[in-house]
Amino acid sequence: MNKNQALSILKKYAPIPDDDDLTEEMIDEYASAIEYFEEHPHVSCIEPIMMTFSIDNCYGIYDHAVDVLRNLTNDQVIPHLVEAIQSKHEGKRYWGTEIAQFFPDERLLDPLSIMY
């Protein structure tokens, strides 16, 4: 797999279906893209990863997606977190809020304060 293939898979699952609607094939395909970016972190994966989040946890694969994001810098991730936190999509808001704990930054204060 290369970066373009991994990005294509992430874009295919934006957002990923709820856990009850996932097939083993879908889970494996999504996991393979996340694994690629675990091994080859790149800024181009931030937005596609953020777009995949649903309210569920994708059978634990989202934890790996969060690890991918944690390997990137605040300046790379924060703008996407702000967007996710302010999203109308519940899953993106939830995961954006969860991920924010790993990126302490004043730019997140206002969006997070609106959440509560």
Rank of each mutant, 00 (worst) to 15 (best):
G91H: 02
L69K: 00
I114V: 15
H80E: 13
D19V: 03
R70K: 15
P48G: 04
D28K: 11
F103V: 12
L69Q: 01
G60F: 09
M1L: 11
E38K: 14
V66D: 12
M51D: 15
K11L: 10
A31V: 07
F102G: 13
Q76Y: 06
E83Y: 09
D110L: 14
A31F: 10
L81R: 01
M1R: 05
H64A: 11
H89N: 06
S87P: 03
Q5T: 11
F37M: 01
Y94S: 12
T52G: 13
S54F: 03
A31N: 06
L10N: 01
L72Q: 11
R107F: 14
Q101T: 03
I55A: 05
P111N: 12
E98D: 08
S8L: 12
S8I: 06
I34R: 00
V43I: 08
E98G: 01
M51H: 13
G96R: 00
A14C: 08
R107S: 14
F102E: 15
C45I: 08
G96D: 02
Y13P: 00
Y94V: 10
K92H: 13
T97W: 09
P41V: 06
P48V: 06
M50H: 07
E39Y: 08
R70W: 10
H89V: 05
V43D: 04
C58T: 06
K11A: 10
F53H: 06
L109S: 10
T97C: 10
V68G: 01
P17L: 05
D28Q: 13
M51R: 12
M115F: 14
Y62F: 02
M26I: 00
Y116H: 08
A84H: 04
K92Y: 08
T52N: 12
D20V: 08
H40N: 15
I49L: 03
E24H: 09
Q101A: 03
V82D: 13
L109K: 06
L69V: 02
L69Y: 02
T23P: 02
